[in-house]
Design a protein around this nucleic acid. Structure first.
Lengths: 253, 253
DNA sequence: ATCAATGTTCGGTAATGCCGAACGGCCGTC
DNA sequence: GACGGCCGTTCGGCATTACCGAACATTGAT
């Protein structure tokens, strides 16, 4: 069994320690029990806290197991937090692209819209925050499906909305690998005739995909003549996704 | 929130991914979802498997959540495994010290003897594997208490066995800090008149204390004139503990 | 028989996380 | 009222760490 990641072993040991007894220990005690330096222990605990595995008592400062260990269905990022972080970046994206922007996450096999910025013109539009979108016919959904963020209900019923809606599970699987290879996804008239959309994944701590952000609008404005999204539009969407990811704690970008 | 341990974040993300859906994913899929190299992902998974957080399906090779996540009270090392690893080292210790050797772990606030090697002479001795020893009057117990291995029931009832048995919680606390500073523990006639014992902690992956090993015998053979254990005896016990720890996956030694 | 999956290993390198000392706050004691 | 211990936290420096990517061994499907 050559080479294990000792940082993770230590984290696991801390979790075990917290789970196996007092479930309410001061940092010094943990460090001493595991024969680690206080600073080291603090770093590990900070990380565990960040991902929701441990919580810290505000008054005593002691550490205890967090709610995130057993999974109550949802990912460790609740929709509210996703929304509050995405909100600062969605507006600029809408302004620069001139299109509507939506932020979504997976809920029960569908796409829950957690934020929506109107297209910056005067036309009448309906706010669809809270709406559940199909996962196989939207750019947001394809992206979320590709990275298996959370709920991952394998789509059983592929409702057909337009002539272009992906019908077969096989075709959907092909789409998924496309998204994965490219790092972003799109859709043209698969949900609504005359409409197209582009989306990119939002990553949380550790690189886990926790949501997606994208624009949607009239086909002739989103795509070029060959029905491919404009490259600069794709770039803008991806940059926005990376910015939000950075804010959510994804280190790499 | 400056600087988090990204290796742990990644591990957490993997756990979330496994917990949130298919609960049965191949390595490549995990790596792809988190945008990590296969090798990296494998290392993390190997570690998580080592600590019991994930398991691997033997036939398909796929990974899924392990039983160790929810804590069924016990530590992630079951007594049988502790015993099977300790057994190779307990015999030599008995041979070199000429005394009886016992290996124990915490069970429900007491010391469960998981292995016992007789003193290598012809005198009659009773096998006490399976016996539950008091935690406050044995060297094994003091060591286990000091490092809070698992059950950590704070001793409510301090049974008094001999004149020397530690009576007050206060005195016991003092003993605990002594053990922690020294890295080993002992006891002289606190359990049985004429008997003394020495013990050292056994650490599992991550440095978590999962058990203890020690010798016990007549006071005049264990201790010097001032009722302190012979240094070379202490050294032997500690070396044995370290050897077992190494075998159990504690990297440092 | 080929191809595409799977999981696994290995070596080189830069980034990584570890350490230990110093800091600031809080509470009990003297 | 001032001190001392304990709490958690921060920071800089160094060496270890764990990451990456490519190559490998197997298996199963085409």
């Amino acid at each position: 069994m050559p080479a294990t990641v000792q940082s993770i072993e230590r984290a696991a040991a801390i979790l075990r320690l917290l789970g196996g007894g007092s479930r309410h220990l001061p940092l010094g005690e943990i460090a001493h029990s595991l024969d680690l330096a206080k600073g080291t222990t603090h770093g590990i605990l900070r990380t565990l806290q960040h991902v929701g595995f441990v919580e810290q008592d505000r008054v005593s400062g002691h550490y205890q197991l967090g709610a995130g260990l057993v999974r109550p269905g949802a990912g460790y990022l609740d929709p509210n937090e996703l929304r509050s972080h995405a909100i600062n970046w969605a507006d600029p994206l809408a302004a620069r692209t001139g299109e509507a922007v939506r932020v979504g996450t997976v809920l029960d096999g569908r796409v829950l819209v957690v934020h929506h910025v109107f297209r910056p013109d005067d036309t009448f539009q309906t706010l669809d925050v809270g709406t559940l979108l199909p996962i196989h016919a939207t750019a947001l959904g394809k992206v979320l499906l590709a990275y298996r963020s959370a709920g991952v209900a394998p789509p059983a019923d592929l409702d057909r909305f337009t002539r272009r809606t992906v019908r077969t599970p096989h075709g959907l699987a092909a789409e998924v690998v496309r998204v994965r290879d490219a790092g972003w996804g799109y859709e043209v008239e698969e949900m609504t005739p005359g409409n197209a959309s582009v989306a990119a994944p939002i990553r949380g701590p550790g690189g886990l995909v926790v949501g997606a952000v994208g624009t949607s609008g009239l086909v002739e404005r989103i795509c070029d003549r060959r029905y491919h999204p404009h490259p600069h539009l794709v770039a803008l969407v991806r940059e926005t996704a990376r910015a939000i990811s950075r804010e959510l704690g994804d280190g790499r970008h």
